[in-house]
Amino acid sequence: MRFKKQKRHRKTVRFFTACFGFREPFKVLCDGTFVHHLITNRITPADTALANVLGAPVKLFTTRCILAELKSLGDSYNESLNAAQTLATARCDHEKRKSAVNCVADVIGENNSEHFFVATQDAELRKNLQEVPGVPLVFGLRNALLLEQPSAFQRQFLKSSEEARSRMTDREYKLLNMTRKNVASEELNNSSDVPDVNGNHAFAGKLIQTSTRKNIEDVKDKVQFKRKRAKGPNPLSCKKKKPRPSTNTAATGKDNSKINTTDSDTTKRSRSRKRKRSGKSNKVEETA
């Protein structure tokens, strides 16, 4: 739950910094009710607690009217008065003392030019400040501090201002028309000085030339993609070719004949040497 709350606070702070120009360190305008809430719930130090909520260093401010109102409330608010006197005082320019609600409304003005975060426990004041664009609100709930999300009016104001910024104003539209007329008149004056053979102005020819030049430049500027073609195999990954043996029929015939003759002689000799005479023939010779 705590993670979701911190994520929501970061999103709200990012909204006001991106859309309304809030910058660090953030300035927080505290009224008497908020200071009293911090003292009663022992949320101290206040600057570190607010810095944890906003995710950035802060500077705390109050006004002379708020201090005078705390002083008039009696002894029960003496501790809150002492804590508020340690804060920086924002300029309110009120000769006579006003209520804290009116003083804060005057300091904020119509568009919160000083970029104040307003910290208050007054529900009515928070409701009124939600109708002012660019005013983030901080309030306390028991011992926790919360940052209100942007109101529907603030979101609608931002959307309408973005739409108005994207369109041309009446003054810009008039200036654009004047420049167009001046350029057109200059081109007509330049073209009227050079008549054509048929009596027509050369303005049309110039327009054709400029259009053709633009077409040629567009063609040159276009990126020309190369077609992928089939490539040969990687020579480093291929095996080397083995040399083929020579096939000469004449040489092979002579060699084969020699080999055959030698083989036949060796076979004959081996057979003749291994041949043995039988014993019967010896016996016949002896008897004879």
Rank of each mutant, 00 (worst) to 15 (best):
T17M: 03
F20D: 02
F20E: 02
F22Y: 12
R23H: 14
L29S: 03
C30Q: 00
H36D: 05
L38E: 09
L38C: 15
R42A: 04
R42V: 03
R42D: 03
T44C: 12
T48K: 07
A49K: 05
G55F: 13
G55D: 15
V58L: 10
F61E: 02
T62V: 09
T62Y: 08
L67R: 01
L67W: 01
A68Q: 13
L70N: 02
L73V: 14
D75V: 15
Y77K: 04
E79Q: 00
S80N: 00
N82Q: 08
N82E: 10
A83D: 00
A84G: 00
A84T: 01
T86Y: 04
L87R: 00
R91C: 06
A100Q: 08
D106P: 06
G109S: 12
G109L: 15
E114T: 02
V118K: 13
A119Y: 15
D122G: 01
D122P: 02
R126L: 10
K127T: 01
K127F: 01
Q130M: 13
G134W: 01
V135P: 01
L141S: 07
L146R: 07
Q149I: 05
F153H: 01
F153V: 00
F153M: 01
Q156S: 12
F157Q: 14
L158D: 02
K159P: 00
S161Y: 03
E163A: 09
M168Y: 03
Y173I: 04
L175D: 08
L176Q: 15
N177G: 08
N177F: 09
E186G: 08
V194D: 11
P195K: 06
N198F: 04
G205W: 12
K206G: 06
K206P: 00
L207E: 13
S211P: 05
S211W: 14
S211I: 12
T212E: 14
E217Y: 05
D221Y: 09
V223C: 04
V223I: 08
Q224K: 07
K226G: 03
K226A: 03
R227I: 08
A230R: 14
K231M: 05
P233R: 14
N234R: 07
K239A: 10
K241Q: 09
K241Y: 12
P245S: 08
P245G: 10
P245W: 03
T249M: 05
G253E: 10
G253C: 07
S257L: 15
K258P: 13
S264Q: 07
S264C: 06
K268T: 13
R269E: 07
K276I: 04
